[in-house]
């Protein structure tokens, strides 16, 4: 049994998202910041990878720059500003709030609200139609209906 598990474990692999360069950090907070930044910044060359996962030369240059800035004690916003100034908003995997990106942030909520509004409208309309049907005959129609039904009974 145990050997079977071991064999299965051999096939199991976790997503590896690391490159080989090694950096020294002053403290763990800096290391964490570096990892967070390289995870959230996109590689301009290989567009579906972040800086942490890319092996392209430009990504390693940018990692070096980010490492330098982190160790210099620059704020995260300063570092992302530095990147955006060179490569544009494109490099941010977590886009900033601006006139052109608000739809990304609030679009889903707007859609949910619209959905709710539509459901509400439909149920209300249904309710109104049902109420109308209950009392849709006027007095004249009612007497006519009664006579017609009586006629049917008589025959």
């Amino acid at each position: 049994m145990r050997s079977i598990i071991v064999v299965f474990m051999l096939f199991l692999s976790l997503a590896a998202n690391a490159t080989i360069d090694t950096y020294e950090f002053k403290d763990d907070a800096n290391r964490e910041r570096f990892q967070q930044l390289t995870n959230e910044l996109r590689c301009p060359k290989c567009q579906n990878q972040n800086l942490a996962g890319s092996n392209s030369p430009i990504a390693s240059d940018l990692r070096r720059e980010i490492h330098r800035m982190v160790e210099e004690g620059k704020q995260n916003t300063e570092i992302t500003d530095y990147m955006v100034a060179r490569y544009g908003e494109f490099v941010l995997y977590r886009p900033r709030m601006s006139a052109s990106t608000w739809i990304l942030w609030y679009g889903p909520f707007v859609l949910v609200a619209v959905g709710f509004a539509v459901v509400l409208l439909i149920t209300r309309k249904r309710k109104r139609v049902n109420e109308k049907q209950e009392d849709s005959l006027n007095d004249k129609d009612k007497t006519r209906l009664a006579t017609l039904l009586d006629k049917g009974k008589a025959e």
Binding site: P44, K45, I58, D61, L62, E65, R86, Y87, G88
Partner: peptide, 12 residues
């Protein structure tokens, strides 16, 4: 060193 390239936003 690619320093100017970096400032220019050269990516390839």
């Amino acid at each position: 060193q690619g320093a100017l390239g970096l400032d220019l936003g050269v990516y390839g």
